[in-house]
């Protein structure tokens, strides 16, 4: 049986007034891969991710999840389709503990009358949060308040939360932008473990060497369209820069010389 893409977006267009953010962009994500979505500022990456995660709607185009056409009218719709998003500013409540953040908006009630009165099953949530985090090798206590965690640990909580709920795809917007070297390494390892656990990851990043290091496939957007797409093993940072700025990958040159020189 041919593997359908988890998510497939075809000819997505989105304009804000006269500004064309997306002009018929195509994009797809396969199971078990890390896809990097790159492009210069204004290329349409964020708009595309917002559309695919349900926070924005396209003016035209089609989105399919596991082959089925879908219409996301809210982030809840996207979540119901197994799509989670890790935002650049994390979207964690710092005063709540890690388990509470993992279950924020998806609280588990106690069984019986107490649960119907709105009483939370803290023990169950703490246990499941611990399991979800340890599956990904995140060693953070479920009852640790987020404000007491380091930046990398906070990012780990955010990623673990997305991974705990995403059955299909996680979108991550610059997940290591605010982190130091060691913490970045930890988060990249975590992203690989998420991928290895079967969830596809879409990464938005400006850090091109990092993109090549972690992504299986790279998609380049420019002026609202997909201009290039390649396995990350086949390309170099210079190729990506070229694609982002001129719209062409210069792959012929790369393949001829192995080390593209300046024009």
């Amino acid at each position: 049986m041919p593997d359908l893409p988890l998510i497939e977006a075809k000819s997505i267009a989105r304009h804000f007034g006269s500004v064309q953010a997306l002009q018929g962009a195509d994009f797809h994500v396969n199971r078990g891969e890390i896809v990097a979505l790159i492009g210069d500022n204004g290329a349409g990456k964020s708009t595309l991710v917002r559309i695919l995660s349900g926070t924005d709607r396209p003016n035209s185009g089609e989105i399919r999840v596991n082959g089925e056409p879908v219409l996301f009218s809210s982030p809840q719709d996207a979540r119901a389709a197994g799509i989670e998003t890790v935002y650049q500013d994390l979207a964690l409540a710092p005063d709540l503990d890690a388990a509470s953040n993992l279950f924020l908006g998806r609280e588990v009630f106690k069984p019986g009358l107490l649960g119907r009165l709105g009483v939370l099953d803290r023990a169950a949530m703490a246990r499941r949060a611990r399991e979800a985090m340890s599956r990904l090798g995140v060693q953070i206590r479920p009852n640790a308040e987020v404000f007491k965690l380091s930046g990398g640990q906070r990012q780990s909580v955010a990623v673990a939360r997305a991974a705990a709920w995403a059955t299909n795809v996680i979108f991550m917007d610059e997940p290591t932008a605010a982190l130091g070297v060691v913490q970045t390494r930890g988060v990249l390892d975590l992203i690989r473990r998420v991928r290895d656990a079967g969830t596809a990851v879409v990464l938005i990043s400006h850090n091109l060497p990092q993109v090549l290091e972690i992504a299986d496939r790279v998609v380049v957007l420019r002026l609202g369209r997909k201009v290039a797409e390649a396995a990350s093993s086949d390309i170099t940072v210079d190729d990506l820069v070229s694609a982002m700025t001129t719209g062409s990958l210069r792959r012929w040159q790369h393949q001829k010389t192995g080390n593209p020189s300046n024009d």
Partner: peptide, 16 residues
């Protein structure tokens, strides 16, 4: 109540 006071934005993104 705690969550809204801690980060309204986090709550909105969690569909609260």
């Amino acid at each position: 109540t705690y969550a809204v006071g801690s980060s309204p934005e986090a709550c909105r993104r969690a569909s609260i």
